[in-house]
Each structure stands twice: as C-alpha cells, then as structure tokens.
Nucleic acid binder design. Structure first.
Lengths: 151, 151
DNA sequence: GCTGAAACTCATTACGT
DNA sequence: ACGTAATGAGTTTCAGC
C-alpha cells in the first residue's frame, strides 16, 4: 500500500501527543523543514492513515460524571436485524460509541450520564427498550489511560 | 463549575465533527465574530472541558488489522496490587487503552495487532503473563461508530 | 462582551535541487 | 523527497465601543 518509513512513524507519535502541534515544530523534531513535514502529514491523510482530528473532551467537567460500558447481546428469538438495532442505538443521545464485536457480546456501547440516577433512567427507558436487545452487562468507568500504541 | 450556555454546547458539537475547523467558521455558524468564538474556545479549555486535540488514526491502514477488547479480572489470590498490574500493562506496545472499571471485570483493554496470529502472540506472551491476571474475555472489533454524544 | 484592525504564526503553493 | 522563498489563511492580541 504505501510504505511508511520510520520518519512517518515518529511523526505520527509526535502528533498523537498533541494533534494541534504545528508542522514547523514537527519538522524541527524530525530534522526536516516545515513544508517537508507538512507534505508527509498530507500524504498520511491521503492514504487514509490519518482520518482527522478529534476533540478530547472531559465529560466530567461538562457535567457527565458517569461513564458506563455496556456489553449487549441481541435476542436469539425474533432475529431483529442489525441495522434496526444500530439505527435505534445511534439515536440515543447518551451513547458515545457503538462497537460491533464478535465474541461473548454482539455490541459494546459507551454511555455517559450526569450521575447514576440519570444512568438508570437511560438504561431503563432507552437501552432496555431497544429492538432485539438481549442480555446486557455493565462496567462503570473508574479511570482511563490512553497509551501511544504500537504505531 | 462554570455555566456552559447553549452556544457553548453548539460550539463543542461543531468542533467535535472536525477539531481543525477554524474559529472564523465556528463564529459564522454561531452568529458570532471570529474573536468572540475564539474566546469561548479558550474559556472552554481553561475550565478543563476541552483537554486537547487527538489524532483519529486508522489502525487498519497502518497495518494493524485486528482490534480486540479484553475484559480482565484480576486473580483473587496473591492480591498483586493494581499499580503493579497497570505499570506492566502500560508497557505493552500493542495496548492502546487501559480502563479501570467496576463490574464483572476489573480492567478493560483495547489491543491492536497486525493479524490474528500476531494477536495470539501478544495474548500468550504479553497479556497472559501479566502480574495478578485472572480470567480474560475477548471481543474482536468488527466495526465502530462514534456519535456526537449528549454534549 | 462585542467589533475591527494589527501583528504574528501557520498552512499551502511555487520553484529549484 | 527535500529546501528556500513567497503567499494566503488563521490565530492571537489590543484598542475602542
């Protein structure tokens, strides 16, 4: 596909720490000129490695103190199709992420709420009423650490 | 805790779609001048709501075609402390996220690998040898959708 | 708190190696 | 694929309303 060299990997690691870092600074740390670093970034975007830049929000600071991961299994009976489920779950405002997975569960959801009482409301009125939903398992987030990863 | 108004929330929603969107464009969509929009962004950063900007990388395009979520329970016996476990798991290159959770599992890990054979190697040689590790459950990521969330 | 303009930085293009 | 130089766009600060 595209043969990333070692410089590309170092560049991605630098940008992963702070995506707002300017190309001039990236270039300085890589021993490249500013346009050279910028061209590498553009190329990484063109080959699809770099999909975009996203905000890193602090949900707690915004009044959403509770984050819960839900493992969802679809009901065996009635075989509601996956599209119906996905469409319905995507319409729930409190759901941040929908992951279709293979294993003990069919879907994994990341859900935020203002507090546990608010979460119970979401769970009972929005989640448990989803079409085709089966057993649900929950884990409450205590703390989270993001690592650079293998790239 | 500083009273976000509705304009702040609309602003965050706009920036969530693309964190590189210029303040001038944000301002135009909110009916604000460019410096006014920029001051709101700075304020959101100052109160901690906006922690930074992160890259949205495509692991598959970078040669990591397999993403697996692991639910980890620590062993009851031996009571290795959490710090030991966290330090060891953070040193594994293939681990992207470490979440400390409450529920059926103690930790949830997001792990990437080049392919399933590579994942088996990571699982056997890195994950299963972690200090204090107990039962492990795995879900393979098929597809993932990020939603705007309630903010 | 907003506007308008100045100063500065960064992104992007052009051109030559 | 890189560098220098030039351009245009975006950010950040400042003075005034």
């Amino acid at each position: 596909m595209s043969a990333l060299d070692d410089t590309d990997r170092r560049l991605l690691r630098l940008l992963q720490e702070d995506a707002a870092r300017p190309a001039s600074e990236i270039g300085r740390e890589l021993g490249l000129s500013q346009p050279a670093a910028w061209r590498r970034i553009r190329r990484l975007r063109e080959i699809g490695a770099l999909k975009g830049r996203r905000l890193d929000l602090d949900a707690a600071a915004l009044g959403f103190g509770v984050t819960v991961f839900l493992g969802v299994k679809l009901a065996r009976t009635g075989r509601a199709n996956l599209e119906d489920f996905e469409r319905a779950v995507s319409a729930i405002r409190e759901v941040q992420t929908v992951e279709h997975v293979l294993g003990l569960y069919d879907y994994r959801l990341r859900v935020v709420a203002r507090d546990l009482a608010d979460f119970e409301r979401v769970l009972r009125r929005r989640i448990m009423t989803l079409p085709g939903i089966g057993p649900v398992e929950a884990n409450v987030l205590l703390s989270e650490e993001r690592l650079p990863g293998p790239i």
